[in-house]
Protein backbone atom coordinates (compact mmCIF):
# COMPACT_ATOMS: atom_id res chain seq x y z
CA UNK A 1 0.00 0.00 0.00
CA UNK A 2 1.16 3.48 -0.79
CA UNK A 3 1.92 5.69 2.17
CA UNK A 4 -0.90 8.02 3.12
CA UNK A 5 -3.66 6.07 1.39
CA UNK A 6 -6.34 4.13 3.24
CA UNK A 7 -6.20 0.39 3.82
CA UNK A 8 -7.64 -1.49 0.86
CA UNK A 9 -6.93 1.25 -1.71
CA UNK A 10 -8.22 1.51 -4.40
CA UNK A 11 -11.33 0.04 -2.81
CA UNK A 12 -13.35 2.87 -1.24
CA UNK A 13 -12.60 4.07 2.28
CA UNK A 14 -15.78 2.90 4.02
CA UNK A 15 -15.06 5.26 6.92
CA UNK A 16 -15.14 8.39 4.75
CA UNK A 17 -18.32 10.16 5.94
CA UNK A 18 -19.10 11.94 2.67
CA UNK A 19 -19.25 8.75 0.61
CA UNK A 20 -20.06 6.06 3.22
CA UNK A 21 -23.87 6.24 2.68
CA UNK A 22 -23.37 5.46 -1.01
CA UNK A 23 -21.25 2.40 -0.30
CA UNK A 24 -23.44 1.29 2.63
CA UNK A 25 -26.46 1.36 0.30
CA UNK A 26 -24.56 -0.63 -2.32
CA UNK A 27 -23.93 -3.39 0.23
CA UNK A 28 -27.76 -3.64 0.47
CA UNK A 29 -27.95 -3.70 -3.36
CA UNK A 30 -29.39 -0.19 -3.38
CA UNK A 31 -28.20 2.54 -5.72
CA UNK A 32 -28.59 5.75 -3.72
CA UNK A 33 -27.66 9.38 -4.01
CA UNK A 34 -28.24 12.51 -1.94
CA UNK A 35 -31.64 14.11 -2.44
CA UNK A 36 -32.39 17.80 -1.93
CA UNK A 37 -36.04 18.23 -0.95
CA UNK A 38 -35.98 22.01 -1.51
CA UNK A 39 -34.66 21.72 -5.06
CA UNK A 40 -36.45 18.39 -5.74
CA UNK A 41 -33.37 16.94 -7.31
CA UNK A 42 -30.60 14.45 -6.78
CA UNK A 43 -27.20 15.86 -5.92
CA UNK A 44 -24.07 14.15 -7.22
CA UNK A 45 -21.20 14.07 -6.27
CA UNK A 46 -22.07 13.95 -2.56
CA UNK A 47 -21.63 17.30 -0.83
CA UNK A 48 -21.84 18.84 2.61
CA UNK A 49 -24.57 21.13 1.31
CA UNK A 50 -26.69 21.47 -1.83
CA UNK A 51 -24.97 23.28 -4.71
CA UNK A 52 -28.38 24.62 -5.76
CA UNK A 53 -29.82 26.05 -2.52
CA UNK A 54 -27.04 25.67 0.06
CA UNK A 55 -29.27 23.55 2.30
CA UNK A 56 -28.17 20.50 4.26
CA UNK A 57 -28.45 17.11 2.57
CA UNK A 58 -29.41 14.52 5.17
CA UNK A 59 -31.52 12.36 2.86
CA UNK A 60 -30.23 9.60 0.57
CA UNK A 61 -32.81 8.28 -1.86
CA UNK A 62 -32.73 5.11 -3.95
CA UNK A 63 -32.69 5.50 -7.74
CA UNK A 64 -33.90 3.12 -10.44
CA UNK A 65 -30.39 2.37 -11.63
CA UNK A 66 -31.46 2.95 -15.24
CA UNK A 67 -29.47 5.25 -17.46
CA UNK A 68 -27.72 5.87 -20.75
CA UNK A 69 -24.11 5.26 -21.70
CA UNK A 70 -22.48 8.69 -22.01
CA UNK A 71 -18.92 7.54 -22.72
CA UNK A 72 -16.53 4.73 -21.88
CA UNK A 73 -12.99 3.51 -22.24
CA UNK A 74 -11.51 0.04 -22.18
CA UNK A 75 -8.38 0.39 -20.09
CA UNK A 76 -5.68 -1.90 -21.44
CA UNK A 77 -2.73 -0.91 -19.29
CA UNK A 78 -2.64 -0.84 -15.49
CA UNK A 79 -1.88 2.80 -14.79
CA UNK A 80 -1.39 2.06 -11.10
CA UNK A 81 -0.04 -1.31 -9.91
CA UNK A 82 -3.26 -2.04 -8.00
CA UNK A 83 -5.19 -2.29 -11.30
CA UNK A 84 -2.73 -4.94 -12.56
CA UNK A 85 -4.99 -7.91 -11.83
CA UNK A 86 -8.04 -6.20 -13.33
CA UNK A 87 -6.96 -4.97 -16.79
CA UNK A 88 -8.44 -4.99 -19.32
CA UNK A 89 -11.59 -3.46 -17.88
CA UNK A 90 -14.16 -0.95 -19.09
CA UNK A 91 -14.87 2.15 -17.07
CA UNK A 92 -17.86 4.21 -18.12
CA UNK A 93 -19.80 7.36 -17.44
CA UNK A 94 -23.56 6.96 -17.34
CA UNK A 95 -26.31 9.59 -17.28
CA UNK A 96 -29.24 8.67 -15.05
CA UNK A 97 -32.91 8.18 -15.93
CA UNK A 98 -33.96 10.39 -13.00
CA UNK A 99 -31.77 13.32 -14.11
CA UNK A 100 -29.67 13.19 -17.26
CA UNK A 101 -27.47 16.01 -15.95
CA UNK A 102 -25.96 13.60 -13.45
CA UNK A 103 -22.94 11.69 -14.70
CA UNK A 104 -22.11 8.59 -12.74
CA UNK A 105 -18.68 6.96 -13.05
CA UNK A 106 -18.81 3.18 -12.92
CA UNK A 107 -17.54 -0.02 -14.50
CA UNK A 108 -19.35 -1.58 -17.43
CA UNK A 109 -19.64 -5.38 -17.57
CA UNK A 110 -21.34 -8.02 -19.68
CA UNK A 111 -24.70 -9.41 -18.59
CA UNK A 112 -24.58 -12.71 -16.71
CA UNK A 113 -27.07 -14.12 -19.25
CA UNK A 114 -25.01 -12.88 -22.24
CA UNK A 115 -21.34 -13.03 -21.36
CA UNK A 116 -20.07 -11.90 -24.79
CA UNK A 117 -18.28 -8.55 -24.68
CA UNK A 118 -21.11 -6.05 -25.24
CA UNK A 119 -21.11 -3.93 -28.38
CA UNK A 120 -21.17 -0.38 -27.08
CA UNK A 121 -22.60 2.78 -28.56
CA UNK A 122 -23.18 6.25 -27.18
CA UNK A 123 -26.58 6.63 -25.56
CA UNK A 124 -27.36 2.92 -25.26
CA UNK A 125 -29.56 1.89 -22.33
CA UNK A 126 -27.74 0.49 -19.30
CA UNK A 127 -28.79 -0.56 -15.82
CA UNK A 128 -27.03 -0.99 -12.51
CA UNK A 129 -25.94 -4.48 -11.57
CA UNK A 130 -24.40 -5.16 -8.18
CA UNK A 131 -21.15 -7.08 -8.43
CA UNK A 132 -18.28 -7.91 -6.11
CA UNK A 133 -15.38 -5.50 -6.56
CA UNK A 134 -11.85 -6.46 -5.61
CA UNK A 135 -8.36 -5.79 -6.88
CA UNK A 136 -6.62 -9.16 -7.27
CA UNK A 137 -4.37 -10.46 -5.90
CA UNK A 138 -5.78 -8.57 -2.88
CA UNK A 139 -8.85 -10.44 -1.61
CA UNK A 140 -10.77 -7.64 0.16
CA UNK A 141 -14.05 -6.98 -1.64
CA UNK A 142 -17.07 -4.70 -1.56
CA UNK A 143 -20.32 -4.83 -3.48
CA UNK A 144 -20.30 -2.13 -6.15
CA UNK A 145 -22.89 -0.76 -8.58
CA UNK A 146 -21.54 -1.58 -12.03
CA UNK A 147 -23.68 -1.23 -15.15
CA UNK A 148 -24.63 -3.71 -17.87
CA UNK A 149 -26.52 -3.33 -21.16
CA UNK A 150 -30.30 -3.54 -20.78
CA UNK A 151 -30.76 -5.36 -24.07
CA UNK A 152 -29.37 -8.80 -24.77
CA UNK A 153 -26.75 -9.00 -27.55
Amino acid sequence: MTAGLHLGFPLPDRDEPLTAPFWDAAQRHEFAMQWCGSCSRFVWYPRESCSGCGGALPEWRVLSGRGALFTWTEVARALIPEYGGTVPYTTAIVTLAEDDRIRFVTRLVARDDDPRPPILRGGMAVEVTFRPLSFPPATDAVTAPFVQPVELG
Binding site: T19, Y45, T91
Partner: peptide, 28 residues
Protein backbone atom coordinates in the same frame (compact mmCIF):
# COMPACT_ATOMS: atom_id res chain seq x y z
CA UNK B 1 -12.33 12.49 -1.45
CA UNK B 2 -14.84 12.08 -4.28
CA UNK B 3 -12.22 10.84 -6.73
CA UNK B 4 -10.60 8.57 -4.18
CA UNK B 5 -13.86 6.91 -3.13
CA UNK B 6 -16.16 7.20 -6.15
CA UNK B 7 -13.87 7.12 -9.20
CA UNK B 8 -10.73 5.13 -8.33
CA UNK B 9 -12.73 2.06 -7.18
CA UNK B 10 -14.24 1.91 -10.68
CA UNK B 11 -10.84 2.19 -12.35
CA UNK B 12 -11.45 5.77 -13.45
CA UNK B 13 -7.91 7.09 -12.87
CA UNK B 14 -5.57 8.75 -13.82
CA UNK B 15 -5.40 11.26 -16.70
CA UNK B 16 -5.11 8.85 -19.67
CA UNK B 17 -8.45 7.37 -18.54
CA UNK B 18 -10.09 10.78 -18.09
CA UNK B 19 -9.04 11.94 -21.53
CA UNK B 20 -9.85 8.61 -23.19
CA UNK B 21 -13.41 9.09 -21.92
CA UNK B 22 -13.43 12.60 -23.36
CA UNK B 23 -11.98 11.41 -26.67
CA UNK B 24 -14.64 8.70 -26.92
CA UNK B 25 -17.37 11.26 -26.25
CA UNK B 26 -15.89 13.56 -28.92
CA UNK B 27 -16.11 10.62 -31.33
CA UNK B 28 -19.74 9.95 -30.33
Amino acid sequence: VEKLNLELPFGFFPQPVYFAAIARRHMI
